[in-house]
Design a protein around this nucleic acid. Structure first.
Length: 296
DNA sequence: AGATCAGAATCCGATTAAAG
DNA sequence: CTTTAATCGGATTCTGATCT
């Protein structure tokens, strides 16, 4: 049996009284796990009840710095240092970026480290030695860069991956699928802008938010109409439920503006043509790849 | 050869956003 | 509602390339 860790704020549980303590002991007994006080390092990552403290993140930055060659590249050509950056330096933070994401300051410190190494080598200062700005270096060759990984964009992509795994109907059966996922708003925007749903039985697709009507969402077609729907409904009602006896129309509350009426008619037209096929599940498609799959 | 220019990093203060 | 952190814009600093 795989070892499991039950992580709990022991001080909080202790304050709650001994009744809780015995409950806890029962859980520990039946699960065969142990109790650790937060914060803790789990699978090489800092785990914390609140925000991850700065010194834990600093440890990650230090790990990248430690990967600099001992002689600081004084014996390496600039091309050699570039290869080192691409294959070693930028690979170190990938794991942490995938799990939690890393704060802006940490990413900038890692980039500054790579920048100093590439342009200045063993010299301490990089001022005035950079041939081109770092955002240019971090572009693919075909866009005039040196093909170094852009850590900000890679971080976004790695976070989008969680949303993809959560929403992909072809990939269900994950225990955390129904749990709320905490990602940055721009990650959600990127996911929304990059994905289409191909509706089958309509159970996995959100009627109001997802892009499922020939590449656009209800939000795109009828922005004025959206405000008449309860927030909770917007983020939970599936296409299947909404189309069942035109339930979606009953979700519209409040007075219609002229604009809303015209958008309502437009949406009515678009939705009328949709036929669900109960036997096929919905499909989630990544718009930027030919096979519709997301990969990083 | 010396002056000047261009491009980039870094520093610093002010504004804005988030957390408790 | 206050404190703290993040972000932004402008000023400064630095070096190599170019011009006179």
């Amino acid at each position: 049996m795989a070892p499991a860790y039950l992580l709990a704020g022991v001080s909080a549980a202790g304050a709650a009284g001994c009744g809780r303590e015995t409950d806890l002991a029962g859980v520990v007994c039946s699960l065969g796990c142990k109790i650790v006080e937060l914060p803790v390092t789990y699978l090489g990552l800092p785990l914390h009840s609140g925000a991850i403290p700065k010194n834990k993140v600093q440890g990650l930055v230090d790990k990248v710095v430690a990967r600099l060659p001992a002689w600081r590249g004084s014996m390496m050509s600039r091309g050699g240092r570039l290869v080192w950056i691409k294959s070693v330096m930028t690979a170190v933070p990938i794991y942490a970026m995938m799990a939690n994401g890393i704060p802006t300051w940490a990413r900038e410190e890692i980039e500054a480290c790579c920048r100093r190494f590439l342009w200045a080598g063993a010299d301490a200062s990089v001022r005035g030695k950079c041939a081109v700005a770092w955002p240019v270096v971090a572009r693919p060759y075909e866009f005039g860069g040196l093909g170094v990984l852009d850590l900000r964009l890679m971080g976004l992509a790695l976070q989008v991956r969680w949303l993809w795994l959560q929403r992909n109907p072809a990939d269900d059966g994950r225990a955390w699928t129904e749990l709320p996922l905490k990602v940055a708003p721009e990650v959600r925007c990127l996911f929304h802008a990059s994905t289409n749903f191909e509706v089958g039985n309509g159970q996995q697709t959100l009627f109001w938010k997802d892009r499922w009507i020939v590449g656009s969402s209800v939000e795109d077609i009828a922005p004025a109409l959206i405000s008449l729907v309860a927030k909770r409904t917007r983020s939970s009602q599936s296409v299947a439920v909404a189309l069942q006896g035109n339930q979606w129309i009953r979700e519209l509350r409040g007075g219609f503006s002229v604009q809303a009426i015209s958008q309502y008619l437009k949406l009515w037209d678009a939705v009328r043509e949709i036929n669900l096929s109960p036997s096929t599940p919905d499909r989630l498609l990544w718009r930027w790849s030919s096979d519709g799959h997301f990969s990083v």
